[in-house]
Design a protein around this nucleic acid. Structure first.
Length: 461
RNA sequence: GCCAAGGUAGCUUAGAGGCGAAGCGGUGGACUGCAGAUCCAUUACACGGGAGUUCAAAUCUCUCCCUUGGCUCCA
């Protein structure tokens, strides 16, 4: 039984989906006005693994993500650079999708743009107006917070406590906490509506989109911790008011922040590293390992040193996979007397691994079990004979785990290099190998040292 | 002020009442012409301070200290 932590109840709950063996999962996507940073990547990798695991456990997962392609930030950025806002949004949407691909985030079924759901957005606002949950002013249409008694149930806040405002409330609003559903604007880009030209507020696109694909109620809604208030709170207010059905979402899941030197990474603090910058320095799987070695709800502190640690840790798994491959080419018997022993270790690890994943997707624990498995198996290799069958079983077990966590342990290496230098180095290596066969240690060591000076490290088997 | 998340070996993290964890790092050994890599073993006052509950507390309760975040831009 899969248990997950529900922000709404502040406790772990058993996963009971609306329809048996089906999960409708929505995660808030990016506002596409700039390149995404590794804090975003943390969230999307986490949900990628969650979706992968649900699939592994036999669920048919419908993973939906929105793309906010209309928003003040996009408009402002476009104005600064003299560009068309929609063009700008399309550009960074494409960059986002590239980044996700590079990070191995493959589980999203549909990316839905806000601008392609204007009819649904307008229809939902009309419903809210009809039912008296919203009102129109000269500046727009607003949700009337005082009509929704559950307001604050997700973030555990009372409306009375929400009187601190960094931005002066619009004087036309009935309550300071009322939020815009429709902003009346005649500056491009705008769309026609029953209330005149304008554009949607921030929160309405998500409920319009989920309403369209999932209906008024669905299983899991995810996002970063910073979205709990006000964004997710507003979503609940809109959808539960519009549909009259509660709850809109059964399980709310939130990822912890990625921090740098203890501070949240964010655009406004200027302490961000983009996904592209990161991937120039480190392979994507190193970052994925780094993300998965902390629980998804915990804060995670980013630094070069920790990434190096992750890289070294990940190498251990890759080396183990390599060792299996080497053994397999050694001409071992098909079956052996210790097959059962190896199978026992494997099955034991698998069941513990799944138990860890069932427990609110505890990837750090799951990884530590994988390391236990590697150590124990290595030890057995020393003490006992093995067979092809055992090795194949171990190999496919690693593949199985790799698919859940999004690693390809079969992939050759963590190294990057360009072709010509690679070929030149091969010539040197081969020459040196011949020298070694002649036991010319002096010259072969010299080659190794000189290559070492160039940061090319040779390791003899 | 209000609402949250944290403080576990040198570092990064699991664990949530009773078998003292995983990885990185350190040390030793095996292997090697040597080095490295690899593998094995081992190491480390481990649970922010104080009080309480209990036969038993890192884990529960209270209290204090510290860090971070949210409070209408945010993954």
């Amino acid at each position: 039984m899969i248990k997950l932590y529900n922000t709404l109840s502040r406790s772990k709950e058993n996963l009971n989906t609306l329809k048996k063996n089906r999960v409708k999962l929505f995660v808030c996507g990016p506002t596409v006005y700039d390149n995404s940073h590794i804090g975003h990547a943390r969230t999307y990798i986490s949900f990628d693994v969650i979706a992968r695991y649900l699939k592994y456990q036999g669920f048919s997962v419908f993973y939906l993500q929105n793309i906010t392609d209309i928003d003040d930030k996009i408009i402002n950025r476009a104005a600064k650079t003299g560009r068309d806002p929609i063009d700008l949004a399309r550009e960074f949407e494409a960059e986002y999708l590239k980044d996700m691909k590079a990070l191995g985030v493959e589980s999203v079924n549909i990316y839905a743009r806000a601008t392609e759901h204007l009819p649904e957005i307008i229809a939902q606002i009309e419903t809210l107006l009809d039912k008296g949950f919203a009102y129109e002013t000269e500046s727009g249409v607003y949700f009337d917070e005082s009509k929704f008694t559950d307001f604050g149930k997700l973030s555990n806040r009372k409306i009375e406590d929400l009187h601190v405002h960094r931005i002066k409330p619009d004087p036309h609003k009935r309550n300071p906490g009322d939020f815009a559903l429709w902003k009346k604007k005649d500056m491009k880009p705008f769309w026609d509506s029953p209330w005149g030209p304008g554009r949607p507020g921030w929160h309405i696109e998500d409920t319009a989109i989920t309403g369209e694909y999932f209906g008024p109620q669905y299983d899991i809604h995810g996002g970063g911790l910073d979205l709990i208030f006000p964004h997710h709170e507003a979503e609940i207010a809109q959808m539960e008011s519009a549909s009259g059905l509660k709850p809109m979402v059964r399980y709310w899941m939130h990822t912890g922040f990625l921090n740098v030197k203890g501070e949240k990474m964010s655009k406004s603090l200027g302490n961000f590293i983009t996904i592209k910058e990161l991937l120039k320095e480190y392979p994507a799987e190193v970052f994925r390992f780094f993300v998965l070695s902390t629980h998804y709800r915990s804060p995670i502190d980013f630094s070069q040193e920790i990434l190096e640690q992750s890289q070294n840790s990940l190498k251990r798994i890759y080396k183990f996979h390599e060792t299996i491959g080497e053994f397999l080419s050694d001409g071992l018997p098909e079956k052996g007397e210790n097959d059962e022993l190896y199978m026992e270790i494997l099955e034991d690890t698998r069941s513990k691994f799944l138990e860890a994943m069932d427990n609110d997707f505890n990837t750090p624990h799951a990884l530590s079990l994988l390391f236990d498995f590697i150590r124990e198996t290595n030890r057995k290799f020393k003490e006992n004979d093995t067979s092809k069958e055992s090795l194949y079983n171990i190999k496919s077990f690693l593949t199985e785990i790799g698919e859940i966590l999004g690693f390809n342990f079969t992939a050759p290496s963590l190294e990057v290099g360009d072709d010509l230098t690679g070929e030149l180095i091969d010539i040197l290596i081969n020459t040196r190998q011949k020298l070694r066969e002649k036991k010319d240690w002096e010259l072969s060591d010299e080659i190794r040292n000189k290559l070492g000076d160039l940061d090319i490290n040779l390791e003899d088997k």
